[in-house]
Design a protein around this nucleic acid. Sequence first.
DNA 1: GATAGCACTATCCTAAAGGATAGTATCAAT
DNA 2: ATTGATACTATCCTTTAGGATAGTGCTATC
Lengths: 122, 122
Amino acid sequence: MNTTEEQTTKGHQKEQCKELQLPVQDALDVLNGRWKLPILIAISFQTKRFSEISREVNGITDRVLSKELKEMEQNKIITRTVRDAFPPIVEYSITPHGLTLHKIYAELGEWGAAHRKLIIGK
Amino acid sequence: MNTTEEQTTKGHQKEQCKELQLPVQDALDVLNGRWKLPILIAISFQTKRFSEISREVNGITDRVLSKELKEMEQNKIITRTVRDAFPPIVEYSITPHGLTLHKIYAELGEWGAAHRKLIIGK
DNA sequence: GATAGCACTATCCTAAAGGATAGTATCAAT
DNA sequence: ATTGATACTATCCTTTAGGATAGTGCTATC
């Protein structure tokens, strides 16, 4: 009986865990890759134009930047605004939803630092 | 003066943010991929053998499972123990460090669920 | 004697991420 | 007339993640 109950409980916990998988994947898709965080940092403090981000995020190519910005816009992390002018002005800024990423990036950073200490050395 | 101070403050914050990048990448490397969470869930509740994990984690191939387990062992998320017997018994269990992942997976899941609501539908 | 289970490894293949390089339309400034 | 700036797009290539399939050495079981 005790055993059965334990198994039931464990089974329940496990089910809860499995339900984590989909939303966790969703979150990782948004966070992942080499460029998302640097781009987010660049935009977080003030609205920036494409070329400004391109200059500030070291090593990124225009092609990749363009793709990342599109993806972040679809994910409602940033907004894109076009102003009619020549040369064209396209501005990117962070959304409220994008701001909520700060907390989890901070937590990832904390965990990562602890991990690094454990793995690489004291 | 006010402006200068603001810029200095912002500059400082930005430097702090940039220092996040390395540990965040470390963390994401550990969390990432399709199989890490399912494997972690399988092992979390009790020590398991290779074949048990293989059966429990649906769709994974032996080759990929073997690679993931090695990586997780190197990251000190799990331990591998061999017991001399035939057929061979190799047991995998979660470490204290591995248990610390639960919290951040939970937070990723929470964020991911909110994100999903925002993007896919109300 | 054949079969099945264990814990892998080896080989081959596909798809996706991301890098390198070059090009586009438009207009203002020199 | 040429140059430069802007915000991209197009083409090509390399690297990486991960899937499919098969095989290994050993033993207990049928």
